[in-house]
């Protein structure tokens, strides 16, 4: 039982990270119908900024988080303005290739940056190596904090989209760009902001992930597991991204323990293939059909 609880908790913790990266995809997808393949790399870069603030500049943990979020939000907005706006409206896959290009550049530049390079770094957290005892299971405080902080972020985002003017404008835009445009919503600016928010969310995921995998230039590849998460939830659904992330995290955690070696790494991909085969719209997705 304690074993089960431990597996479930670590599954949920890593699932939260997938969920947040998936959430970043979904926000951008809903707004611009673009799938950002560099989302994992955005997470990685965010991790590096948090590391820089806490370890290199000696800031406290929370200040480091705020710093990384701010820098990365600006980065996200700049990326949208500089490389994505020019290809907006082109074939979906052209835009995806642009984001793949952005990912290459980010990984390359990070490894060339003095002080970052190809090494692996640790972000010191206030809750490192503390353990709480729940029902006989020793649960690391770090994992617990990942879950708590993800929940907090989701609450903040929910409030933002529900109650602020700009958040409501974003929702309107994601449902029907043209109508939103006619209503006087500055659609282009909203899209830029969405990229900023999405980058910040990914950064948050990177910071949460840092204690588990550490910060390194190839950390972004973990973000690829967010694709299965987004698909399982139904691409384009925000609650779907969260639930999908948790499902993938749990499946991975349990298959790592109960199934032969090797399954842990591909469990997410087996699940996504099954979902695509039998329920391509995912758990919460709407069925898309082109109108003629």
């Amino acid at each position: 039982m304690a074993q089960f609880l431990q597996l479930a908790l670590s599954g949920i913790a890593i699932g939260c990270v997938y969920a947040l990266v998936a959430l970043g995809f979904v926000l951008i997808y809903k707004a611009t119908e673009t799938v950002n393949f560099a989302q994992g790399d955005v997470m990685m870069l965010g991790g590096f900024f948090a590391y820089t603030a806490t370890a290199l500049m000696g800031w406290p943990y929370w200040a480091g988080i705020v710093f990384a979020l701010a820098v990365m939000a600006i980065f996200g907005m700049a990326a949208e303005r500089i490389v994505l706006r020019p290809v907006l409206g082109q074939a979906q896959f052209t835009v995806v290739m642009v984001t793949i290009g952005v990912g290459y550049v980010m990984r390359g530049v990070v490894t060339m940056t003095p002080g970052w390079g190809t090494d692996t770094y640790k972000i010191a957290t206030p809750f490192a190596e503390k353990v709480v005892n729940i029902g006989g299971a020793a649960i690391s405080l770090e994992q617990l904090m990942i879950i708590v902080m993800t929940a907090a972020l989701c609450a903040v985002l929910f409030a933002f989209f529900r109650f602020t003017r700009i958040g409501i404008a974003m929702q309107a835009t994601s449902q029907n760009q043209l109508a939103a445009y006619y209503m006087g919503i500055p659609v282009a600016r909203v899209n830029t902001l969405i990229w900023g928010i999405s980058a910040a969310v990914a950064t948050f995921a990177g910071i949460l992930l840092a204690p588990i995998t550490f910060v390194h230039a190839n950390m972004g590849f973990i973000g690829l597991k967010a694709f299965p998460a987004a698909v399982v939830g139904g691409f384009g659904s925000i609650p779907g991204a969260i639930v999908g992330g948790l499902i993938i995290g749990l499946v991975e955690s349990f298959s790592g323990f109960y199934l032969p070696e090797g399954f842990k790494d591909i469990a997410a991909y087996i699940v996504v293939l099954l979902v695509l085969m039998f329920k391509p719209s995912g758990l919460f997705g709407e069925k898309l059909r082109k109108k003629v």
């Binding site: 052209t94 290739m97 642009v98 290459y104 550049v105 990984r107 390359g108 990070v110 060339m112 230039a217």
Partner: peptide
């Protein structure tokens, strides 16, 4: 200092890819 970097190749590859997609589809 630059020539020794392993990151040089992905960076240039990425930049060229982006440049083509934007300027010469």
């Amino acid at each position: 200092a630059i020539a020794q970097q392993t990151g040089l190749q992905p960076t240039i590859f990425g930049l060229i890819l982006i440049a083509f997609l934007i300027f010469e589809p």
